[in-house]
Write a protein that binds this DNA or RNA. Sequence first.
DNA 1: GCTGAAATCAAGAAAAC
DNA 2: GTTTTCTTGATTTCAGC
Lengths: 152, 152
Amino acid sequence: MQIDGVDQRIIASLVADARASYAEIGARVSLSAPAVKRRVDRLRAAGVIRGFTTVIDPAAVGWSTEAFVELFCTGRTTPAQITVATRRHPEVVAAYTVSGEADALVHLRAADIAHLEQALERLRAEPFVTSTRSMIVLSRLVDSPTVVPAPT
Amino acid sequence: MQIDGVDQRIIASLVADARASYAEIGARVSLSAPAVKRRVDRLRAAGVIRGFTTVIDPAAVGWSTEAFVELFCTGRTTPAQITVATRRHPEVVAAYTVSGEADALVHLRAADIAHLEQALERLRAEPFVTSTRSMIVLSRLVDSPTVVPAPT
DNA sequence: GCTGAAATCAAGAAAAC
DNA sequence: GTTTTCTTGATTTCAGC
């Protein structure tokens, strides 16, 4: 799909504030509110905009312990296997296949260390996991929403 | 701040769809629209709700190459130093101090491998960085928004 | 404290152009 | 793309639990 500079500026506005009104966004990009709505509808239909969500303070809802776990898997493990296995665990925030020593990197979030340990044990019990290496998050230094490069 | 089960269900609704109307959320949690708005305002003021954002398909916007980089730093490096250094680079999506071998973990997003390499070189040029270990993301398997535990 | 109801005002949706 | 119109939701005020 074709995205022009105006679309990128609309996206940047929505990333900064998903509840901004169409008129408000229109004022920023020099467009009328209906024109903005049509572009947003088009971007949603095309899958560029996947949805609108809310940024929560993880500590406030109780799950404040995070870790990144490198997974080392058996030779014949497929990404699909890792996907279905990790999706089963509610503590998995994100998972990626990666280059380097490890086969996958899993981002975990749990209530506390005990909960994290329990989630990790469940992960390690997956049949294709040969070993893991964990990095427990001590503090979050930077956390930006999706980067939207400036229109050129 | 005190968060009850109704607050958690409101938060869950807003994480699922930040543009849901107060009446719509109210129907889910059995509350009137003004009551929902008052709770949302309170949660925002308390910092539990940090903001509303939009989930973008990173590929559509052009920055589709990702990597996780472990930073190994000199002995006297403070988290604050890492914070200011990583914030300077627009490619840094997130950064954490971690336990384990590495001192910090940096999540990078760039347009392509060349761009990623360039960002990595800039990171490695920071005076406190002694070495790095990179994991380039091959594919994203799981990507969930902030977990909101179910009210008990 | 909290809530719901009603009135006012702004925003969204769908025409016409 | 804009402007107009109509409908819907947001927001304030006020009274009741």
